[in-house]
């Protein structure tokens, strides 16, 4: 019987096979708890990975074609230099748009550090100009030279200097999330294998009786596999549900929020955790099948 047939057999309820293994035992609680805990952690790792992915995409897309010009000049020259910078930018090939940030926008940028009531007007604040590139981009060195000539206090910040490591970090965080999921899956398999081995050892008498009356190894293994697969499925479903509820408690930070406030799923991503219980059951199926076949093969 191939694996697909065995899974089909497993899915079709076989009350007889289900009953031959005693229902009680610590392996029930161990399997349920392990599956629930692992599913809970998987949901978080999945959310972390997807949040990191969204951040990487967000930073990558939003910042890829944006630059900032910071104009630091005495207050009397600030408006003139700002106007000069905007004029230069209008004439620069590769610049799609440019605009000076309003005092409110600049205050919003500083709000996380200084609070909402910062009197920006009374501080010697540089003026920020945000520009968007066209698809072809602009000549940054040429722009710097022109700015130096027209507005000596203007400094071009291409964003790419600090954007690249952030995008790289977010990408790696996403990979780490997936690596954690793989490790959790492996740990689930190992724990189910341990529990299955314990159950097989504890039920040596049951196995002896089944063999005496003509049960094949496949039948005996199936009785254990079915039980552990269904237990894992139930435990993982509970763990996934708890994990999702826990994620709902985490404050939402919008699609472009940081890791902490964005540690949740967005849109259709909420469907991803639904895969956790069946995948955990598949892991349990193969772990128990291997353990049972190994143990039964080792018996006379």
């Amino acid at each position: 019987m191939n694996t697909l047939d065995r899974i089909k057999t497993l899915a079709a309820r076989d009350a007889g096979a289900d009953r031959v293994v005693p229902p009680a035992g610590f392996t029930v609680r161990l399997t349920l708890f392990t599956a629930a805990a692992m599913a809970f952690l998987t949901v978080f790792a999945l959310a972390l990975s997807m949040a990191a992915g969204r951040l990487a995409t967000s930073w990558g897309e939003e910042l890829a074609r944006a630059s900032t010009i910071r104009i630091s000049a005495p207050e009397v020259q600030l408006a003139a230099q700002t106007a000069a910078v905007l004029r230069v930018l209008e004439q620069t090939p590769g610049v799609a748009s440019a605009r000076a940030l309003s005092p409110e926008e600049q205050r919003a940028l500083l709000e996380p550090w200084f609070g909402p009531d910062l009197p920006v007007e009374s501080l010697p604040m540089p003026q920020l100009v945000e520009l968007q590139e066209t698809g072809d981009g602009y000549d940054a060195d040429g722009l710097r030279l022109r700015l130096q000539a027209e507005a000596p206090g203007a400094v071009l910040d291409e964003h790419s200097r600090w954007r690249r490591p952030l995008v790289t970090a977010a990408g790696r965080l996403r990979l780490l999330g997936w690596a954690a999921i793989v490790l959790i899956g492996a740990a689930t398999g190992a724990m189910v294998t341990l529990a299955a081995n314990a159950a097989l050892a504890a039920n040596a008498q049951v196995i002896a009786v089944l063999r005496l009356v003509g049960a094949t190894d496949g039948y005996i293994a199936g009785a254990f596999v079915r039980r552990f697969t269904l237990r894992t499925l139930a435990g993982a479903a509970a763990g996934t549900l708890i994990g999702l509820l826990a994620l709902l408690i985490v404050p939402a930070g919008g699609d472009t929020g940081g890791i902490l406030t964005g540690l949740r799923f967005a849109g259709l991503q909420w469907l991803w955790p639904l895969l956790v219980p069946p995948l955990a059951a598949v892991v349990a199926f193969f772990a128990t099948e291997l353990a049972a076949r190994r143990v039964l093969g080792g018996l006379a």
């Binding site: 007889g16 096979a17 009953r19 031959v20 005693p22 229902p23 008498q205 049951v206 002896a208 009786v209 089944l210 005496l212 009356v213 003509g214 049960a215 094949t216 039948y219």
Partner: peptide
């Protein structure tokens, strides 16, 4: 006389039928 102690006698006697 090894039996499955958690199953009623009738099910134990019928066990060869069940496994086959």
């Amino acid at each position: 006389c090894q039996f499955l102690d958690h199953l009623p006698l009738a099910e134990n006697v019928a066990l060869p039928l069940t496994v086959s």
